[in-house]
């Protein structure tokens, strides 16, 4: 410890020590975050480490409690709980297979809707529109992100669902070829309606992150293309979109994560029939919607444990997707790696 500091008057815990003189301490050569000219005040250090420790405890606690509480269901159904069978508590059948399929289908259809729309909006806002128009529009779409999912669900159930039942779904049934996946009867609540709701709810995620990625493509790249005789669209298509592709991929991945985990709004509009839907117009169920609907009715013990096991499966699914998404966001060199793959001779 430095001499002047040892002589300085004892400071309160908040610490306002006056530095003494003394030359450059050997400490100055250490990386800045390892320097210890003065010890951290004990209270402050405790608070920081305590907070970090508490956070770690929460994360670990979450995983441990889900795993331990679902063990009874896994003991009952075996590991095949993950994929096989139907969810039928009355018959004592507990398995997440149909619900996983329902979750994947709704998410997939939602992405088929939201990705083209979201990309179109991002490109419009970032590349095609003047600032005075793009700024308020993008604020509106950000506002959509702030709308609580229960409000979206309420609107979808009481306003959108009747429209689907009377107009949209009959129209889809009339389509040639596609009517194989759009088979009636038209109820309103359906896998398709749930997917549309998910698309609406994930749109802000896709737009915000894609737009950031598009805006991050340097002007120098755009001007290089422009100076070679590229039209405005060619600049966007060949320079801006490829340059932003890792960011766009991350945006889509995070949107998938959100769609997988959304429960309340989906529970309101999917119709809640835990079976593999034969058509997009049929009611179905997802992991999230099943948890919402089954938990209150679950019998104590095995029933509750099975619902918590569903939460475990959902957790696994979303963590997987989110880890991939976070890696995509972080890996700035990602586009180089992709570039190699795209150009193998």
């Amino acid at each position: 410890m430095n001499e002047p500091i040892a002589n300085s008057p004892p400071s309160p815990a908040s610490g306002s020590a006056v530095p003494g003189e003394g030359g450059v301490s050997p400490d100055a050569r250490r990386p800045w975050h390892k320097r210890r000219l003065l010890p951290s005040s004990p209270l402050y250090a405790t608070l920081r480490w305590g907070a970090a420790g508490l956070f770690a405890a929460i994360v670990v606690g979450l995983i441990v409690s889900i795993v331990s509480q679902s063990s009874q269901a896994f003991a009952h159904s075996g590991i095949s709980f993950l994929w096989s069978g139907t969810w039928n508590p009355d018959a004592g059948d507990y398995a997440s297979g149909t619900l996983v399929v329902g979750t994947v289908i709704t998410t997939l259809v939602a992405m088929i809707i939201v990705v083209p729309v979201g990309l179109g909006v991002s490109v419009s806002l970032s590349e095609l529109m003047p600032r005075w128009l793009a700024a308020p529009l993008s604020t509106s779409i950000e506002f959509l992100a702030a709308v609580p999912s229960i409000v979206v669900g309420l609107w979808a159930l009481l306003v959108l669902s009747p429209v689907f039942a009377t107009d949209v779904e009959p129209a889809l049934e009339g389509l040639p070829v596609l009517n194989r996946i759009f088979r009636g009867p038209a109820y309103g609540p359906s896998v398709l309606l749930a997917s549309v709701v998910l698309a609406i709810m994930t749109l802000p995620t896709v737009v915000a992150l894609s737009r950031t990625a598009l805006g991050g493509v340097p002007i120098a790249d755009r001007e290089a293309a422009m100076a070679l005789g590229a039209t405005h669209w060619q600049v966007v298509r060949r320079t801006v979109l490829p340059g932003a592709r890792s960011g766009i991929a991350a945006a889509i991945t995070l949107a998938i994560g959100r769609a997988l985990g959304e429960s309340i709004a989906v529970a309101l509009v999917i119709g809640n029939r835990p079976a593999i839907p034969h058509s997009l117009l049929a009611p179905g169920a997802t992991l999230g919607s099943a948890i919402v609907n089954q938990f209150a009715e679950a019998s104590p013990g095995l029933g509750t444990s099975a619902v918590i096991a569903l939460a475990g499966v959902l957790l696994l699914l979303t963590i997987l997707v989110n880890v991939v998404g976070q890696l995509l966001v972080r890996r700035r060199g990602g586009r180089r790696l992709l570039g190699v793959r795209g150009a193998v001779v």
Binding site: P218, D221, A224, A225, P242, G243, R336, G339
Partner: peptide
Amino acid sequence: FQKPNPFPTMS
């Protein structure tokens, strides 16, 4: 241009 600006995603 001032700074080298090859298209980063292209070979």
